[in-house]
Amino acid sequence: MSKASTYIASVIFSLLLIFLMIGAALAGVLRYCALDTETALSIVDSQNLPARVHAALETNAKQQESTTGIPYDVYAEAITEEQLAPIIRDTVTNGFAYLRGDTASLGIQPDFSALEAKIREFFISYAEKNGIKQNETFEEAVRSTTDAAEANILAACDVFRFGSLNDAGVIKKAKVYVPWAGIAALALIAAVIIFACILFLINVHEHGNGFYWIGTASLIAAILLLIPSVWLYQARWFDRFAVKTDQTFAAVTGFLYTNTKAVILTAIGGIIAAIFMYLIFGLFRLRRHKREVVRKAKH
């Protein structure tokens, strides 16, 4: 292979390698960060979601006081931040498991016995004070109020709105592609390794040049990932998110920024790898230069 054809072949394969590296990085972040339940659960803590959900439920219950006739105090003791935290975590875990196809149904059934007891206690006391018969109608009112309270709590704890996404058919569509994320990530990583080997083979007479081309591809892929990610992160672009319901806004934007950070870290890793490759390439050139100096001295 002439030097010109080696150069052109290296440019073409480096170009392909750049796209493979970008694809592998994005598929990797999707599979091992975005679709990882732990990432979403870390948002629950970092964004203090139990407190936000509690505040939303408190506002809602106080607002409903005049409509339902049930004072907020009835719910207050039964719905604390500490009780909400595991419900939020279970809802998130179940949502991601459903998305990955690990569980057949969406939704959880937490223990609401304390809440049910509080509501019943209030109804009985109200009925006794006002001489209302505790008949079937009474039981129906208790049941519907308990159901409504539980549904409200579950809806508020569904911070990523899995329920709404499922109703809109979005999860059904996403479930088709989600299992492929891991396969795509592995396939793209394998392709990156194969293309890197091809670059070494193209530059078989100058081993050091293989490191140069792989380093260059890695550097450019990293730059192309880094620039938009840093812009999205620094400009706080995801704050444009339209749904401003406090807990959903905090959960979704927190989740998106965490994944953007993962892309930024991956890109920084790519830059470090590129520097490392350039250093090896430099060592090869130095060794070749020394060999040439020795050869000239002998002549």
Binding site: R236, F238, R240, A242
Partner: peptide
């Protein structure tokens, strides 16, 4: 455009409803 329509944006200090 629908999901990220809020051009006014909220900041970390005033996040939530605008």
């Amino acid at each position: 455009n629908i999901a990220f329509m809020d051009n006014l944006k909220t900041t970390a200090q005033t996040d939530g409803l605008h």
